[in-house]
Amino acid sequence: MKIIKRSGEEVTFDRNKIYVAISKANERVDEKFRLTDAKINSIVDDIEIQCHREDHALNVEEIQDLVETGIMEHGAYQVAKLYITYRYEHELKRRKNTTDAQILSLLEENNEEVKQENSNKNPTVVSVQRDYMAGEVSKDITKRFLLDPEIAQAHEEGLIHFHDADYFAQHMHNCDLVNLEDMLQNGTVISGTKIDRPHSFSTACNIATQIIAQVASCQYGGQSISLAHLAPFVDVSRQK
Rank of each mutant, 00 (worst) to 15 (best):
K96D: 06
K139V: 04
T36N: 06
D30T: 05
I103M: 12
I190N: 02
Y77V: 10
L184E: 00
G187Y: 00
G192C: 06
S138Y: 08
L184A: 04
A134Q: 08
V178Q: 04
D140C: 15
C218A: 08
L35S: 00
G75F: 02
E117L: 13
R197H: 07
K115Y: 03
R53T: 06
E157F: 09
A208F: 08
G158H: 10
V126I: 04
Y167P: 05
D14A: 02
G8A: 00
A165H: 08
Q214R: 13
G187I: 00
A228S: 14
I40L: 06
V178F: 08
Q214Y: 13
F13P: 01
G75S: 06
S191V: 03
H229Q: 07
N59C: 03
S237D: 15
K2L: 08
A21Y: 11
V20C: 08
Y167Q: 13
I22G: 03
V137M: 12
P198F: 01
T98L: 13
P149R: 05
E54C: 06
N41G: 13
T124S: 07
N111W: 01
L82G: 12
V20K: 04
N110T: 15
V44I: 09
A169F: 13
A134D: 15
S105C: 05
S105A: 09
N186K: 10
L66E: 03
I49V: 14
V11W: 00
T142L: 04
H52W: 14
R15S: 13
Y88D: 09
K93C: 06
N206R: 08
Y77T: 15
E109M: 11
E9I: 02
F145Y: 15
Q102I: 09
C175R: 09
V44Q: 00
L177H: 13
N122L: 03
K139Y: 02
V137I: 14
V126P: 11
I18C: 03
H52A: 15
V67M: 01
N120G: 10
E117Y: 09
G222L: 15
A213H: 11
R6F: 02
D14F: 05
A21E: 12
A228Q: 13
V79H: 02
S138W: 01
E91H: 14
Y77G: 12
I71Q: 00
I190F: 07
S7G: 10
I40V: 10
A208Y: 11
V125E: 11
N110K: 09
Q219T: 05
E89Y: 12
Y167I: 08
A213E: 12
L159A: 11
I3S: 01
H90Q: 12
R144W: 07
R53C: 05
Q210P: 00
E108Q: 11
T124M: 01
I151E: 03
A25L: 01
E27W: 07
F162R: 14
E156M: 04
Q153I: 12
Q185C: 10
G135L: 01
Y167W: 11
V126C: 06
I43Y: 04
